[in-house]
Design a protein around this nucleic acid. Sequence first.
DNA 1: TTGCTATCTGATTGAATTTATAGGCTGTCC
DNA 2: GGACAGCCTATAAATTCAATCAGATAGCAA
Lengths: 146, 146
Amino acid sequence: MRLSTKSRYGTRAMLDIAINYEKGPVSVKSMADRQGISVKYMEQLISLLKVAGLIRSVRGAKGGYTLNKDVYQINLRDIIDALEGSMFPVDCVDNPEICDRAKKCVTYEIWKNIQDTINNMLDSLTLADMVERQLKINSTKPFSEK
Amino acid sequence: MRLSTKSRYGTRAMLDIAINYEKGPVSVKSMADRQGISVKYMEQLISLLKVAGLIRSVRGAKGGYTLNKDVYQINLRDIIDALEGSMFPVDCVDNPEICDRAKKCVTYEIWKNIQDTINNMLDSLTLADMVERQLKINSTKPFSEK
DNA sequence: TTGCTATCTGATTGAATTTATAGGCTGTCC
DNA sequence: GGACAGCCTATAAATTCAATCAGATAGCAA
């Protein structure tokens, strides 16, 4: 059970777009370069974020992506749901009816507890929080490209 | 990102062994039957738990597996580590040196926070707790085979 | 000592998922 | 019109997951 590259690259992309919000749209190419992955792969991830309504595109030269919502209205759960479906899905938790054991099985309760805890964490962390924390890091330890 | 069947079947197997601790060793076959999976697959999972030192085997007729530690000394983290490696591994969290971004990247901090939270939950849940909760469920909603 | 039970070991397979690559099209600015 | 940048879809490569298969080894009981 590991966090996919989708979620990791995609979350950094959201942060990238949010931090550069004032400066206008951020191109896929620039994000892909910063993260050291191919433009084509980054395009796919970005597309998921767009479909989810988190970002919006500006086509043509000088185009790119900007946020489609306020940084306070986007949280990490939105981002991960968009990229990965859902964090920590265990079938019997998402659909208790598929397992006739669910009602009488501790493990069902336990997986559910863990999932709820993770979801609460993800819900409570807004993109605004993330940007703020990133900027604080940048100011103490200057960000170098690469 | 989903919890593997390994973890789910394996955790139930541990619970099975713990609940039957007084009655002596539990055979792989009986566990596989109860969970509706093949003996061969269950053998593999059980073997991981044995290598990790959580259970011990009794070979030959009337053999099977029993706990190798007290129920209070085994927690869910031990079980999942044995079965799955580690829950929620993100490379840059487990090995910060592989990514020169780690020190100046919020997402690193965030994944680490999430991992720590999950680990704390798993650490604090002992097999004894799980058995107790299961028995409580059984007494209110009788367990039927299948 | 023979037969049964049950663990042990490891190879292999099939399917699914993840992680990309690639090609070509559409829209927009200068 | 040409460079820039997003859009869409197909497909390949690699890895992981889930499971099966084949057989060996060890212990108990009759």
